[in-house]
Write a protein that binds this DNA or RNA. Sequence first.
RNA 1: GGGGAAUUAGCUCAGUUGGCUAGAGCAUCAGCAUCACACGCUGGGUGUCGCCGGUUCGAGUCCGGCAUUCCCCACCA
Length: 903
Amino acid sequence: MDDLDKVFTAAHVEQKWTSKWMEDGCFDRHVEEGKESFCTLMPPPNVTGVLHMGHLLNQTLQDVFTRRARHCNKCVTWIPGTDHAGISMQVKVERELAKDGIYHMDIGREEFLKRACEWRDRHGGIILSQLKKLGVSCDFKNSVHTLDGDYSRGVLTAFVELYKRGYIYRGKRMINWCPATQTALSDEEVTMRPQRNKLCYVRYEIVERPGEFIEISTTRPETIMGDVAVAANPADERYENLIGLHCRRPLNAAEIPIIADEAVDSSFGTGALKITPAHACADFEIGQRHNLPIIDVLAPNGTLNANGGEFAGLDRFVAREKTVEVLRKIGALVKIEDHESNVGVSERGNVPIEPKLSEQWFLKYPKVEEAKRAVSGGFVKFYPRRWEKTYLHWMDGIKDWCISRQLWWGHRIPVWYKKGFDRGNSANWHISIDGPSDVENWERDGDVLDTWASSWIWPFGVFGWPDVEKMESSAFRYFYPTDVLVTGPDIIFFWVARMIISALEFVGPEKKSLIDEEIAGRIPFKNVYFTGIIRDKIGRKMSKSLGNSPEPLDLIAKYGADGVRFGILMSAPNGQDLLFNEDNMALGRNFCNKLWNAFRFSHSWRHSKSFAETQLSDILSRISAEDLDVDDRAMLANLVEFCDSFERLFTNFDISAAVNLINSFFWDEYCSWYVEASKTRLHAGDATVLAVHGVVMRQLLLILNPFIPFITEELWNAGNGSPRSMQNVRCETADDLRLAFQFLKLGTEDSENTSRFKEFLNGTRRLLSQLGGRKDGVALSIMPQSEAAQGELEMRMAKLKKLITVEKIQFTAAALQLPSVQTPLGSVFLHTGISDATTEREKIAKEIEKISKLIELNNKKLSDEKFIENAPANVVRGTQKMLEDNVARRNELHRILAALAEH
RNA sequence: GGGGAAUUAGCUCAGUUGGCUAGAGCAUCAGCAUCACACGCUGGGUGUCGCCGGUUCGAGUCCGGCAUUCCCCACCA
């Protein structure tokens, strides 16, 4: 026991194994035809991002799947990468430049990109090296960045192809404008937030009837200068006689028509709505229906433009105050009410977005029907399943995707316009990846693509699509469709859904529609595992600004990578948000330490080679069947059963349950029971018992390696002079073990025998706990339930004495007037009791009362004809058995009570 | 407005297609330096399974309604 420390110190082995894995190319992509493939894709983190709490869970899960697949004899690749992260990165770089007093517009596009790349290369990839500390086993050599040359070609190819196929168009539409970052955003990038506003009631004078007014209500008085009409619902009697007349816009005074439109809600405010087509979606639509002009009063940066008249140049929120002031002054303001409404906010810019009419590139999604079928038909499976509904619902209401961004950082749109010609006319466009040959006569579109319009080809882009040769050399055909994607449900629309769509469109030849077989071949992944969000103890999202997030690397340093991994998996309910508690990290660490010591214990007697140098058959050959006792046999049978359950849970992606199963099997079944029960024979150097320990520990290490890779590697190689990774060692299945154990002829009776004894043991321990810490002169008398029970106990007498540390144990034929406990093997009496006969009698009487109630309940059930008729046979039998047991137990208690009464 | 999730011990959660007397971990209490591990061992206590109905021989589990909390989608100025 000298060669292993008493406490497992993670830091000692983590660096060592990380290097070893890399040196040996353990995670490299390789292909063996005939072997099953396994592929998973890393959701590419932001290239300049750092490890956060979400990664711990997400990446650990991916690693678990990946490493487990290696032990299941598959050819495995886990493809890592990073995302250029469009807006967020551009904002970051702009901020960095601003520190040096540089405004990005001043240095121009080229210089900006140069500096951005420098900055990325300086800070980029930090996250990948941080992930190494967590122990992730991805194919680092084939890491992909979304701005890499090959990948970019794929992104642009997708654009060009979609244009050719008629799915991409340029158009002037209402889009979400972010005045802070000054770019268009997709609908998905806008989140609605409730906001308290002032609802202003403003009266507009009727031109045809001086002195009469029509009253509207608005939360945006600063856009009044953009009003082109006032509308009411045609069914609204209050305004019936005004339709067709005109009113005077109170600011930037002008005559505008009063119109009727169904879209107006009569019950809101006054029932009259000012129409500002440039600044509200509903208004835009009404304007279109009535052929109204459009007056845009806002500049891109959110200030009022020349159309704002006297308010021009003011920020929109300042202008809001000012217009109210002016309206009040001129007597147009009737009243102001408090009002709460939802306002669209740009996540990145963290400012309210502006609905804005703008010329942008849009994508009409292809293969929507197929994408729905891919999920509803079970080609792509979601875990947990409920996210399918969310996905399908989004597909049902899917709207065209605004894919152009007014940024520099990203994939520049591959469209050129003929200089000096009308840009609005597609005859003057050149759309290709490489551009026109006479590029000097053309001007390239200045916009870039939405980041998600690059990461949406990730599943095949990382294999070099559309370059056939690259796809061949990267084994695309072998690995695609990928097996499992681990991600958060928050990007189900942004990413997951779009990847499915792009894959259905691009993997395979161009086709208008797909049949099921084609869908099955094109899907990007077969399974999607959605993790929960990591929150703090009181349920808040973890965030830097709240300061409620621990530093993941500190946790790893404190509890070890294995400890953190196991701890977070133990506490992560499947698909449910996880309330993070650092105590759970300690649990993970404790588990590792327990494993370390359990190994150390049996290892101390082991004179054989390390597991790395041994096969299962070698260990089994040291077992002689006749030397196995009933508990050894039960242990091996339970090991098989455990593997069965584990495999079932793991295959169903029930990782949380699988981890808890491992925990209880290892801790309760193996350590608390079997190690203790076999100690005497281990001390005696029994080779067979040692081999049983070897079999169990070996299997545990193989099953645990995906979860806690460092410590298991270390133990696997303990005593081995030239360490060899257990990475690709095949983990025996339950069936393999059944086959291997065949010569032992294991049966269920051994397990039953063992569990009877465990119950006996627990009861006896309960009895002994009455003594507190006293041990001196303690003796037990056992009144066996039967001859067979006595035999079972005699067989295990040495074990029993060791387990309860009581030396004097004898059998008795009659009940004694002593404190007692009843077990399936008989009653146990404690000779050095502290209770007197009276309290003992009371205790027994109470127990009898309790059992009597149960017996009554059993009887009632069994005498109910309907129960006998309807309940399945095994339930009826179970109830009968229970009744018998309870009656037997009560009889025994009565006997003991009688014995106590004699004195 | 539409959809989803949650509600079980002080806390965090399990609880398969309804079936034996509802479980685990943490916390807590009592005891233990026992020769793998105090990051450990042994034992104890703790529940109107959110509420009200219904189906059933039998409901934590299925159905209907209600309440509270959270999330997503849509959106009225």
